[in-house]
């Protein structure tokens, strides 16, 4: 239960301060209904840092130059919920159609696949992709697989790199045969095996800053992240995605997301029960 005395002291002025900080640094837009969310996510930092209350924590943020506590606050405000094989259908499409097609096309030429997960949270998304690749490319060791994963949160990147997951996390969405095949169990933690872990390169990247480490790729995963941004920011990021996506590559978004009405230079391509987006004129179907 939340403690009213500690959280209800978020004044409009404090809320606006946090909102501006968050908007500036992580591009996340918080509407007025998010006051409670903010105070409940800041409370552990206020307590852990010995500030006593969320108000005192915000006073500290105000009075200091941008530093460690600011970063902690920004990372705490972002929703990082994720799971292995989230919504499953996109991964089914990757396994049955998209990856086999790309492999066929690249087999006689570059023998290379480049994939980027742009809001990877604790790593379940790129690791799911890595497992799919291992399943569908029998001669994977003769290919160059560039699997990049980034997030603006340093804490998430650090967690993702470890590749250690709780029972609760591997119980969700991950096919049991893959759990048995690609993880080692250490008590209640599940450690991803090296053969999958080393396939993914993690780094910090704010989507709304310059993309210095992102090459041309075949697949971009931007799932469940644009929803936190305002429309202008979404458009700006989608325009950049287009420039980094190969002409026959795809953008993969969250189950409830679409580029339609945001950017008409993507075409929607349906694979079974999943929709992917490909650079191309017109908004498609």
């Amino acid at each position: 239960m939340r403690n009213r005395a500690e959280t209800s002291d978020l004044t409009q002025v404090d809320f606006d301060f946090v909102r501006t900080l968050v908007k500036q640094h992580s591009s996340i837009s918080l509407d007025d209904s998010k006051g409670y969310l903010i105070s409940s996510r800041l409370l552990p930092i206020a307590r852990g840092g010995g500030f006593g209350s969320v108000a005192a924590l915000i006073a500290h943020l105000r009075s200091r130059p941008h530093g460690k506590v600011h970063t902690e606050v920004l990372e705490a405000v972002a929703t990082t919920e994720t799971s292995f094989f989230r919504d499953f259908h996109p991964y089914e499409a990757l396994r049955d159609q998209v990856i086999p097609d790309l492999i066929r096309k690249r087999r006689e030429s570059t023998r290379m696949l480049s994939i980027w997960s742009g809001a990877c949270s604790s790593g379940q998304e790129p690791y799911s992709v890595a497992m799919v690749l291992r399943q569908v490319i029998p001669d994977i060791d003769t290919w160059t697989i560039q699997l990049l994963a980034s997030d603006f949160s340093g804490a998430m990147i650090e967690r993702a790199r470890k590749g250690v997951f709780k029972q609760l996390e591997v119980n969700r969405g991950l096919p049991a045969h893959l759990l048995v095949r690609y993880f080692d169990q250490h008590g209640v933690s599940w450690w991803l095996k090296d053969e999958v872990k080393r396939m993914v390169t993690f780094f910090q990247q704010n989507l709304d800053r310059e993309w210095t480490r992102i090459p041309q790729v075949d697949l971009v995963f931007l799932r469940n992240v644009l929803i936190y941004f305002d429309v202008e920011t979404r458009r700006r990021i989608l325009r950049k995605v287009r420039r980094h996506l190969r002409p026959d590559g795809f953008l993969v978004m969250g189950a409830a997301e679409t580029t339609l009405s945001l950017d008409d230079s993507f075409r929607r391509v349906q694979f079974g029960r999943a929709a992917f987006y490909q650079p191309g004129e017109g908004s498609g179907q």
Binding site: S83, F85, D87, F88, H89, N171, R172, G173, P175
Partner: peptide, 9 residues
């Protein structure tokens, strides 16, 4: 939720 995810698989 977990059960639903497994059924989806």
């Amino acid at each position: 939720e977990m059960l639903l995810e497994k059924l989806m698989l």
